[in-house]
């Protein structure tokens, strides 16, 4: 078991972003999490990443052969988390040092190659295109070889080439040792890769199915059901 969440609640003032959510993800699973805006998906990822503290409930991370340390978590957020005034290589080297990666220079160079950015390693990040930044962001998240990767809308702003590269990289992570929790609005991309589908709505999980034999229409119907319900309630308010 990689991740276990029990009765998790997160409040911001009077707003309840996560409401009694319980979830268990096995090691090596690739899980896609869908949901309308404001469903609490990003909050859930931040809680798992340790960036937020739960109001109540517990989150435990455990991987085979390792302790429950947060150093095994990689996180890709809406923002790139990169320093625009540093080069691509300097960014990766800096984060390698923070994570205590062995041989940070070699590791940073290899990661640039893996992300197809070896030619742009000495270029300042502020000169990167959106797609290049997103690839470097993923490289940053993978630098320390995390066992659990949390991806928050990684496809946003990518062109077709960037999309293909990202999908290829994510597919390479389906090796049984990496656990991935992908948050996306894009059903096609989310369903293509995942073993399991979750839909979150108003801070709770309303749908949880294995993706084996699962049609896009079924997920679409469940997703739209949640969104429409949300819209109806919003209008009635």
């Amino acid at each position: 078991m990689a991740l276990r969440i029990s009765h998790l609640t997160k409040r911001f003032g009077i707003f309840r972003a996560i409401s009694g959510l319980t979830l268990r993800i096995e090691e090596g699973q690739f899980v896609s999490l869908f949901g309308p805006n404001g469903a609490g998906k990003t909050t859930l990822l931040k809680l798992v990443a340790g960036l937020l503290k739960p109001t109540s409930g517990t989150i435990s991370l455990r991987f085979n052969g390792s302790g429950p340390e947060r150093r095994h978590v990689g996180y890709v957020s809406h923002q790139s988390l990169l320093y625009p005034e540093m080069t691509g290589y300097e960014n990766l080297f800096f984060y390698s040092r923070l994570y205590g990666v062995a041989h940070p220079r070699e590791r940073s160079g290899r990661m640039l190659e893996r992300m197809g950015l070896s030619g742009a390693g000495e270029q300042l990040v502020r000169e990167y295109s959106r797609g290049m930044k997103q690839r470097l962001t993923l490289g940053r998240a993978l630098l320390h070889e995390p066992r659990l990767l949390l991806l928050d809308e990684p496809y946003v702003g990518l062109d077709q080439q960037g999309n293909r590269l990202l999908t290829r990289i994510l597919r390479s992570l389906k090796d049984g040792t990496h656990t991935v929790l992908l948050v996306t609005h894009n059903l096609a991309e989310g369903l293509e890769l995942c073993d399991r589908v979750l839909i979150q709505h108003r801070g709770s999980l309303v749908y949880d199915r294995s993706s084996g034999g699962l049609g896009r229409r079924e997920v679409e119907a469940a997703y739209l059901g949640a969104v429409e319900e949300d819209g109806t309630e919003s209008r009635s308010e």
């Binding site: 990443a49 340390e69 947060r70 809406h78 790139s80 988390l81 923070l98 940053r140």
Partner: peptide, 13 residues
């Protein structure tokens, strides 16, 4: 502004 504080806070240090 650059969101890099999150990047630092994510590290196990």
């Amino acid at each position: 502004e650059d969101g890099t504080l999150l990047g630092i806070l994510l590290s196990p240090m």
